[in-house]
């Protein structure tokens, strides 16, 4: 009853891949945005709103916007395909993109918590010791953001495993390409004899989610302790 079928294994590994790719691609962007959002500049409020939009929009709407922008005939999608040969619609890469957009605000929120605890005086101290702006960022700010970065990455990974609406709208539900764990669960529910499979996949999703949250909490506490907070 609890043994996974080959198709279910495929959905699980695909989910892990998609979530991992989205997290890795999102990290530099999220760090930059989280850092930028602690500073004062023109248009900060607008940037903040845009970044957080996926939290409040229906995921299907996000998927639709992605289709408009990144679809084969969308301005960005067309360019990517022509210049880089990167196809997003109906592919794993597209699933990762949809997941990345949806989880970006979660990641940024986790990082901002650790940035708000950061003493701006430390950067001043680094300045008087001869460190320029980039040097200060990499030698002081980034290491002190580490608990937030870790927590953000793990939360986004766990949430990314379960991204449904944006993925199915943008890249559809293709076995082996875009059928991730939640899509497989949804497909199983559509089958007349899919109850057992649905139960297995739901249990798996719950287990992965809890493991992710516990790990995020544990790691960020450990790092925070090392940083002496």
């Amino acid at each position: 009853m609890w043994a996974l079928s080959a198709a279910e294994w495929q959905a699980l590994t695909l989910s892990l891949q998609v979530a991992a790719i989205s997290v890795v691609c999102n990290l530099p962007l999220a760090v930059a945005l989280a850092y930028a959002l602690t500073r004062r500049f023109m248009g900060r409020g607008l940037l903040d709103a845009v970044v957080h939009l996926p939290l409040v929009l229906p995921p299907v709407a996000v998927g639709y916007l992605l289709l408009v922008l990144f679809g084969a005939r969308g301005p960005i999608g067309h360019w990517l395909q022509a210049k880089l040969g990167l196809e997003l619609v109906f592919t794993r890469a597209g699933a990762a993109l949809a997941t990345a957009v949806m989880t970006l605000p979660l990641m940024i929120r986790a990082m901002r918590v650790s940035l708000e605890h950061l003493d701006p005086g430390l950067e001043q101290a680094a300045r008087t010791l001869g460190a320029g702006p980039w040097d200060r960022f990499f030698s002081v700010t980034l290491p002190l953001m580490l608990p937030g970065i870790l927590a953000g990455a793990i939360t986004a990974f766990a949430a990314g495993l379960g991204e449904f609406g944006a993925v199915i709208t943008f890249v559809s539900n293709i076995p082996g390409q875009t059928r991730t764990l939640p899509l497989a669960l949804y497909t199983a529910l559509q089958m007349p004899d899919g109850d057992a499979a649905a139960a297995r996949l739901a249990g798996l999703s719950i287990g992965l989610g809890i493991a992710g949250l516990v790990l995020a909490e544990y790691l960020s506490r450990r790092v925070a302790r090392r940083l002496g907070r």
């Binding site: 003493d119 005086g121 430390l122 101290a125 008087t128 010791l129 090392r226 002496g228």
Partner: peptide
């Protein structure tokens, strides 16, 4: 500031915690 070569000791030490 980073090019002045002027050392500064702050009231609250400001050691790097990491």
């Amino acid at each position: 500031a980073e090019h002045r070569g002027v050392g500064y000791v702050f009231q609250d030490a400001r050691l790097f915690p990491h």
